[in-house]
């Protein structure tokens, strides 16, 4: 099952289960979505529940929020999260804060979804990761699926959740196929929000990643395994709430940590994970945390430069080795120190 089919089936099932759920956005109806995520939904649910909107992100996001205030459960599709910048006032000032500011009188059950992060060759204004932006805002829940199972289970959870959810998809993953368990195909399937998934167990180094970078981290783990380094890959799934418990448990075991994300390094998801580990289990770290992130520049268009601006599998491999090398070096140093002390004593 592709991620696209997973998202489509999740929307279909949730719309079928609850008549309050409706989809709105640019091109979601007749055109079946810029990336065909809403394929077949207009035909099945009609134009009242699959709503093609005029082109104003600020407009349809505000209208979606208002519909959520008054009892509907909108799923607002952004053609890309880059365009949601125009609507960020409604996502943060309206959706994220209203339950709190109204003291629970107005809940905002809404999902904002669409592709996030870099696609391929679409330049600076179409290639940006918003995980850290939305991840810093109380009142929002922020999810980033990797596989088809993630996409199905998390989107279904997002639609059912009473709080506003920012759902960050990835354009390059839409066409990717993943095996899906029978359990995940059941219409009742749901993945709990706020729980990370150990994609691959390991004992030497923990690598955290989300969305497309989980795939890169898994590839890096293959390479590392051949060199005798056992990497544990954590698929964060949920950026907010962040599953600190799973990350901490893994680092307590491996004593080393590499964070991976496509977004900019400063104030990023990696920075948050790093400080969280330092605050809570600093004594378990045997090496400095390594942070792999996108380059600190707007995304260039040229393919060669674009590649340079994004984390590659080799970058993750090198970072994992650096953390492992530092500890073995420290061990070496420790041994030579002991040897040295012994030699001095022997001379005495």
């Amino acid at each position: 099952m592709t991620v696209r089919e997973a998202l489509n089936s999740a929307l279909d099932e949730e719309m079928s289960a609850d008549s309050k759920v409706f989809l709105m956005g640019e091109e979601v109806g007749e055109y079946q979505g810029a990336y065909k995520i809403s394929k077949g939904l207009l035909e099945k649910y009609g134009p009242e529940r699959v709503l093609d909107t005029p082109i104003t992100e600020a407009g349809f996001t505000g209208i979606g929020v208002g519909a959520a205030y008054y009892g509907l459960k909108p799923v607002v599709e952004f053609m890309t999260f880059n365009f949601a910048m125009q609507a960020i006032d409604h996502i943060i000032n309206s959706a994220a804060k209203t339950n709190y500011m109204s003291a629970g009188q107005i809940s905002v059950p809404i999902v904002f979804r669409g592709p996030n992060g870099a696609a391929a060759g679409v330049g600076a204004q179409h290639s940006q990761c918003y995980a850290a932006w939305y991840g810093s805002c109380p009142g929002l829940k922020v999810l980033a699926p990797y596989s088809s199972e993630d996409a199905r289970g998390l989107l279904k959870a997002a639609v059912r959740d009473p709080d506003p959810v920012v759902f960050l998809e990835n354009e390059l993953l839409y066409g990717e196929s993943f095996p899906v368990s029978a359990e995940a195909l059941d219409s009742s399937f749901c993945i709990p929000i706020g729980k990370a998934k150990i994609e691959r167990e390991g004992k030497d180094v923990t690598i955290t990643a989300f969305s497309k970078m989980v795939g890169s981290a898994l590839k890096a783990a293959e390479i590392l395994a051949k060199e005798g380094i056992s990497a544990e890959i954590i698929n964060l799934r949920s950026i907010r709430p962040l599953d600190r418990a799973t990350i901490n448990a893994s680092v307590r075991k491996t004593n080393r940590l590499v964070t991976v994300e496509e977004g900019f390094p400063q104030h990023g998801v990696g920075a948050e994970i790093c400080i969280s580990v330092i605050e809570e289990i600093f004594e378990y770290l045997d090496a400095p945390v390594e942070r792999i992130a996108g380059a600190d520049v707007p995304m260039p268009y040229a393919a060669n430069l674009e590649r340079m601006a994004l984390p590659q599998v080799e970058d993750i491999v090198r970072a994992a080795k650096r953390t492992s090398y530092q500890i073995s070096l420290n061990g070496f140093q420790l041994l030579s120190l002991i040897k040295h002390i012994f030699e001095v004593r022997l001379r005495i």
Binding site: A58, G59, T61, G62, I63, G64, V65, G66, A67, A68, Y69, Y70, G71, L72, P74, D89, H90, N93, S94
Partner: peptide, 14 residues
Amino acid sequence: ATQIPHAVGAAYSL
């Protein structure tokens, strides 16, 4: 002015 599109959304709900 954020209440203006919210009103339209609520009207859609009605």
